[in-house]
Structure formats: C-alpha cells, structure tokens
C-alpha cells in the first residue's frame, strides 16, 4: 500500500528522477556519438533536463526564481546552438564530414 502510494502520489521527486534520466541520456549522446551535431543535440537535451528540474524547484518552493533561470538557460542554449552549428558548418566545409575527430585539426 505504501509502495503504491509512493508511485501514485506524484511529487517533485518523480519529476526530478525524470530529469536525471533525461540528463544521463544527453550525457550518453555527448560521450558516445561521433557526429558533432548529434553531440550538440545531446547538450541541448542535458540543458532541457536541467530546465525541468528548475521548473520543479520553482513550483516546489513557490517562488518564481527557478523559472527565470529557465529563461536564461534557454537563451544561452540558443546562443550555444548558433555558434556550435556555425562551427559544424566550418568543419563540414573543410572535411566533408561531421566527425568530432576533425576538431583537433582546426587550430592555426
């Protein structure tokens, strides 16, 4: 009975667990994939998971500062995506491939 109650009474901890799972998926994408753009997508997924936990904490504390942080995270994510995609385009123009191993040849 207690176990069922724990699963059925949705509280902040459920959302935080979901956020942790999504974050680890993003982390796996960044570590395992070789395509630069898919790695960027992994970073976006991680940032989204963090946003989720911010919103949960904003609701849990009753203050809206967490939602403000989500704004900032979103803006920074958009900026990061812009620069990352520009870098990816630069890599693709040079090597005709989007493999992360080409990043080390970009210096100079």
């Amino acid at each position: 009975m207690l176990i069922a109650d724990k699963f059925l009474r949705i509280g902040p901890e459920h959302y935080l667990a979901l956020s942790a799972i999504l974050f680890s998926f993003g982390m796996i994408a960044v570590m395992m994939r070789k395509n630069v753009i898919v790695m960027l997508m992994g970073i976006e997924l991680m940032l989204n998971a963090v946003n989720l936990s911010f919103v949960v904490f904003a609701r849990e504390t009753g203050a809206l500062n967490g939602q403000i942080m989500v704004f900032f995270v979103m803006t920074i994510a958009a900026a990061e995506a812009g620069v990352g995609l520009a870098l990816a385009v630069a890599i693709y123009k040079k090597f005709k491939e989007l493999n992360i191993r080409h990043f080390e040849k970009l210096k100079g």
Binding site: G11, P12, E13, L16, A17, A20, I21, F23, S24, F25, M27, I28, M31, E60, T61, G62
Partner: peptide, 22 residues
C-alpha cells in the same frame, strides 16, 4: 558512468523525500 550518475541522482532524490517534498 552515465547510468551511475542517473542512479545516484535518483537514489539521492528518493532518500531526500522528506527534504524535497515541500
């Protein structure tokens, strides 16, 4: 390592229910 991170996070969250559950 990613799974361990998620597991640790979920474990911490589920053990801190009294703290988190405002």
């Amino acid at each position: 390592s990613a799974a361990a991170l998620a597991g640790v996070a979920i474990g911490v969250i589920s053990h801190s229910v009294q703290v988190v559950d405002g």
